[in-house]
C-alpha cells in the first residue's frame, strides 16, 4: 500500500520534472502520426527521412546553445548572422590555400568572439538582449554583403581534405554529422543539468539577484552563454558550407526564426530559469519534418510557414499546461 503510493508519487514526480520535454516529444509523435495518416506513401520513402537527418544537425548546433541562453534569461538573434560570418571566415581561409583545419578553428573562434562581444554589449552596456542582438544581426549581415559584394565563394576541392569525411562524410549513406550532433546533444545535456556552468545558468535565469548574492558571477555566466551560442552557430555554419561546398552571403538568415521556434516548441519557456535539452531535440525534429514534410507530401511550399505558425501556437498552448512561472 505504502509502496504503491510511493511508486505513484515517483511517477508523478517524473512527469512533473520532465513534463516539458515529454510534451514536446508528444508534439513530435503527433506530427509523425498526422503525416503517416495523411501521406503514408511519402512517409515510408527513406529519402524524406534522410533529408531530415541532414537538416537536423545544422539546427541542433544552433538550437541547443540557445536553450542555455534562454534559460539564463537572455535571447539572441545575432546567431543567424554569426553563422554566416564564421562560414565566411572559413571560406576565405580555405580559398586562400591555407589548411582547412585552421579555417575551422578560425571560424569557431570568430563565433566565440562575436558571442562574447554581443554578451559584453548586453551585460556591461545594460542593453536589451532582443534589441541589441537584432542590431548585431543586421550589422554582421550588412558587413557580409559589403565585403563579399554579394557574391558567394565555392570550395570545390574541400572534400579531398582528410577532415571532410570525418566531419560531414557518409557511412553507408548515413551522414556523419548526425553522430557529431548526437555527441553535442549528449555533452550539452550533462553540461546543462550536471555541470556547475549549467546550474549557474538556471540560477541566473531564475533570480539574478539571488544568484549574485550567493557569489555567482552573473555577468560572466551570461557572456559565456552568448559565447556558446556563437560557437554553436559557427559550427553549424561551417558544416553547412562543407556540405554544400559554398559560402553565400545570405547563409543562415533563413534559420533565424526556425531555430528560435525549435527552442520554444521544445518546451523551454521564455522567462528564464528553466530549459530542456531533450525537449529542444524534439523541437528541432518538429521543425525539420515540417520544413521538409509539407513539401514532400505534395503541398505547395507556400503552406509551410502557415503550418509552422500553427504548430508553434499549438505547442505553446500545450506547454501552458505546465503552469506559469513560480516565484
Amino acid at each position: 500500500m505504502f509502496d504503491e503510493d510511493n511508486k505513484k508519487s515517483n511517477l508523478k514526480k517524473y512527469f512533473h520534472k520532465n513534463g516539458r520535454a515529454l510534451g514536446s516529444m508528444g508534439y513530435f509523435l503527433l506530427l509523425m502520426i498526422v503525416f503517416l495518416i495523411g501521406a503514408p506513401e511519402v512517409w515510408i520513402r527513406p529519402n524524406l527521412h534522410q533529408s531530415v537527418f541532414v537538416m537536423m544537425p545544422t539546427l541542433l548546433f544552433m538550437v541547443i546553445p540557445l536553450v542555455f541562453l534562454v534559460a539564463s534569461g537572455e535571447i539572441d538573434l545575432s546567431f543567424a548572422s554569426t553563422y554566416g560570418l564564421s562560414a565566411y571566415v572559413f571560406a576565405l581561409i580555405v580559398s586562400a590555400g591555407i589548411d582547412p583545419i585552421l579555417g575551422l578553428f578560425a571560424g569557431v573562434f570568430t563565433g566565440a568572439i562575436v558571442g562574447a562581444a554581443v554578451g559584453a554589449l548586453i551585460v556591461f552596456g545594460k542593453l536589451s538582449s532582443l534589441v541589441a542582438s537584432l542590431g548585431v544581426l543586421f550589422l554582421i549581415r550588412g558587413f557580409l554583403f559589403v565585403s563579399t559584394n554579394s557574391r558567394s565563394i565555392t570550395l570545390l576541392e574541400i572534400d579531398s581534405h582528410w577532415m571532410y569525411p570525418i566531419l560531414v562524410g557518409k557511412i553507408y549513406g548515413f551522414p556523419v554529422q548526425v553522430i557529431w550532433a548526437v555527441l553535442f546533444v549528449v555533452f550539452s545535456y550533462f553540461l546543462f543539468n550536471r555541470h556547475v556552468f549549467g546550474i549557474h545558468i538556471h540560477h541566473v535565469g531564475d533570480n539574478e539577484v539571488s544568484a549574485s548574492q550567493m557569489g555567482i558571477n552573473v555577468k560572466e555566466i551570461k557572456i559565456k552563454a552568448f559565447m556558446f551560442v556563437g560557437v554553436g552557430a559557427a559550427i553549424s555554419g561551417i558544416f553547412s558550407t562543407l556540405i554544400t561546398y559554398t559560402f553565400f552571403p545570405t547563409q543562415g538568415f533563413g534559420y533565424l526564426l526556425l531555430a528560435l521556434a525549435a527552442v520554444f516548441i521544445g518546451g523551454t519557456p521564455y522567462w528564464g530559469g528553466l530549459g530542456t535539452i531533450a525537449g529542444a531535440v524534439f523541437g528541432v525534429g518538429v521543425i525539420a519534418y515540417m520544413e521538409i514534410g509539407v513539401v514532400a507530401v505534395g503541398m505547395s511550399g507556400t503552406w509551410r510557414q502557415f503550418f509552422n505558425g500553427l504548430i508553434i501556437l499549438l505547442a505553446l498552448l500545450g506547454h501552458r499546461l505546465h503552469g506559469d512561472r513560480v516565484r
Binding site: H195, V196, F197, I199, H202, D206, N207, A211
Partner: peptide
C-alpha cells in the same frame, strides 16, 4: 541569510542549498 532569502524558486531545494558552492568533480561536473 538575506532578508529576501536569496532563493531561486524554480530550482530544486538541493540546487538552492548548494547555490554558488556546488560539490563537484574536477572539470566542474557536480
Amino acid at each position: 541569510v538575506f532578508q529576501d532569502k536569496a532563493l531561486c524558486p524554480q530550482q530544486s531545494i538541493v540546487w538552492n542549498i548548494f547555490m554558488g558552492k556546488e560539490l563537484s568533480y574536477p572539470f566542474g561536473f557536480i
